[in-house]
Design a protein around this nucleic acid. Sequence first.
DNA 1: GAGTGGTCTAGACCACGCG
DNA 2: GCGTGGTCTAGACCACTCA
Lengths: 271, 271
Amino acid sequence: MSSPPHHPDNPQPPGAAPSATVLSPPSALPTPAFSPLYQQIKGLILQSLQSGEWKPGEAIPSEIELAARFRVSQGTVRKAIDELAAENLVIRRQGKGTFVATHAEQQVQYRFLKLRPDTGDARTEGPAQRSILECRRTRASAEVARALALRSGDPVIQARRILSFAGEPTILEDIWLPGQAFKGLTAEQMADYQGPMYAMLEKEFGVRMVRAEEKIRAVLPDEEQARLLEIAPTTPVLSVERIAYTYNDIPMELRRGLYRTDTHHYHNEVH
Amino acid sequence: MSSPPHHPDNPQPPGAAPSATVLSPPSALPTPAFSPLYQQIKGLILQSLQSGEWKPGEAIPSEIELAARFRVSQGTVRKAIDELAAENLVIRRQGKGTFVATHAEQQVQYRFLKLRPDTGDARTEGPAQRSILECRRTRASAEVARALALRSGDPVIQARRILSFAGEPTILEDIWLPGQAFKGLTAEQMADYQGPMYAMLEKEFGVRMVRAEEKIRAVLPDEEQARLLEIAPTTPVLSVERIAYTYNDIPMELRRGLYRTDTHHYHNEVH
DNA sequence: GAGTGGTCTAGACCACGCG
DNA sequence: GCGTGGTCTAGACCACTCA
């Protein structure tokens, strides 16, 4: 950390780094950051988050504790946490504390899935049925490697599954995961786990998906895809190509989904 | 406004409403709001925004001025403006001031359009060519009325246009606008205006689109649509149904777009 | 150099959740 | 009743823009 900015009355000694025991980050300098104090604090909290010091669902230390740990005012910690909360990395609960965000919550199941039934409440539809069609270890094609920031031929896990809503097959997904981070992942694990796949990856492998980018197109399914989705091959479907990222914008999943939109639609809000 | 919360040392007289001259809002009570002070301030600023006290692109008063006007601290005004900035209603520029957001800026042309070329930079593609195919006064169908919160048979303006990128017709749009708010809108106005349509509506009618919701599906174009987009009728396209809202969540536009996704894709980021 | 937004602090009190 | 996050204030100084 660089020389911390001005403390009006309490001039901080130049090298006074936070007293936190900062674990060595995976692939970056300790904290380059010539940035506002609260940004630096945010970075330090982020490091603890990604190092697993606080697990998903757990509470992080209170603002007062963090302020003491980092030797800054509570207001500065607050602003750092505000940004983390705005990015959905933590969740604030008044009177209780601030918690590490997780995919394993009833309220926000399928945080990243924007498909909604055309009619009725999402809740009347009930949870999705998942069925794993395939799950195997293979090697990254050039395309998959590029999406996952790997080299061609690096080990990847490839899976295919179907999500059904109210008994209707609605989503067909092909999923690629970097083999290294998910050693030992089995089809059983994917099939048996109760809850979203991202919750399972979080729990079993400590990898948290934090944000994703999607490219959406209209396509016709091939024969096999149409059969699996139980639609005619002339029925257009949404092709949703997703790259999901962990902390530090590291891509951790490539997913190609085909969404039926005869009974559902992709919902988006734009500001 | 309810009794304003606690001023530590400067107890505010109970009825001390901000000294701002509040114009009567269109269809709501002066400010129900049993909410934090900064939320009430935000509401008051919002009223000035929607009443046109400050026009798009103009600067709003400085934080210090607003603090004086509303008799609160600068920090409270700041928090109110922070939220407005987060919602893209205003833009802060350090050293210059805070400005009313507008659709008429070079940087953020087509703020609501999420379609991007598959390859190359969006800027290499240049601006879109617009051609108006149709623009007429008509009456709202039940469906259009529901979307725009009108009654069936209310006057609406219906338009159809094509957006082309690099000479290729890419988007076909049918647009419905409530007739009352846009009296006197002509096809010439739509065709001649340099810049996004929302910028024109902003300038000519004082109606600012602030947010939109989209429902996206994959469909096949009908014959006419295919002809206009210069594609085969067997080419699936994205159907994007957008409802755009002004302040206070009042729907002001229904738009049905067909997007070609053979050369472009709909891009979305999810958190 | 004046004016604007941006950062930081310190301290007070409020609203909530839980034992 | 205590601890948590949430609100509000007051005052200082920084960083940027422009005349």
